[in-house]
Design a protein around this nucleic acid. Structure first.
Length: 222
DNA sequence: GACCAGGCACATC
DNA sequence: GATGTGCATGGT
């Protein structure tokens, strides 16, 4: 894997799908909430949960922090794992309130990226993908987000081994591409788009995949 | 009814 | 350190 291959894949995806306009949210705080809610969950379910919060005007750090955990859980029920995710959101809100009592997210995000990432990762329920999603899509930091689709796409095309971990995949992109938040934003969104349409866990539509010329290992199962 | 979806923490060996 | 399991809804 080298720079030109990664850029070649990017161009191919962009030419095929066009700009994805990510993240699907109205505010940075909404991105943070969505990043937690979408853990191992279909976005359409997350969207319902966020609609519930928006309908009650709860999409702010202060108002969500003041909400009883049971009430929060009920609001986000459609996103699945709702008790777990209510706790995770509460953990995140507690950290933010400790860092920024006024709930000033701009100020929070103006910190050093590495430090910010550590603070996010220290929250129970925020792992690498969720942290990086928040950093890229809410804070605009140039970090490449790795997810299940990225892993599946790269392994199925024989571009990485199945043992490759999160950090190694992230380095793959970040060590060769320019550290550009707009590029990383679009690239990750395009990989998800490709994953949803062509690289599902079962029944991959490999023969119609825009990246088919990159795959030495074709998996076109009946 | 089985399988899947933009993870993560924790138990157990 | 690797591997397994709980968490849960809604769509296909």
């Amino acid at each position: 894997m080298n720079v030109s291959a990664l850029l070649d894949i990017y161009s191919t995806l962009f030419d095929h799908f066009g700009p994805q306009g990510w993240w699907p949210a109205q505010t940075p705080f909404e991105v943070m909430v969505g990043a937690v809610l979408t853990q191992n969950t279909n976005w359409s379910n997350v969207s319902r949960a966020i609609d519930n919060l928006r309908a009650d005007d709860l999409l702010s750090p202060e108002r969500l922090a003041d909400l009883p955990p049971e009430t929060l859980a009920e609001k986000i029920r459609p996103s699945g794992y709702y008790n777990l995710k209510a706790r995770r959101l509460k953990n995140l809100l507690t950290m933010i309130r400790r860092e920024e009592p006024a709930g000033d997210l701009d100020r929070f995000f103006s910190q050093d990226t590495g430090l910010l990432r550590e603070k996010l990762l220290s929250v129970k329920g925020i792992g690498q993908e969720t942290a990086d999603s928040i950093l890229l899509y809410a804070a605009g930091k140039p970090l490449f987000v790795i997810d299940a689709y990225t892993y599946r796409i790269l392994t199925r095309h024989g571009l990485i081994s199945e043992e490759t971990d999160y950090e190694a995949m992230q380095s793959l992109f970040m060590d060769s591409l320019p550290l550009d938040a707009d590029l990383f934003n679009e690239y990750h969104a395009l990989l998800v788009r490709l994953g949803k349409e062509f690289c599902k866990k079962s029944n991959p539509r490999c023969s119609a995949c825009p990246l088919r010329r990159f795959q030495p290992l074709l998996i076109d199962t009946p």
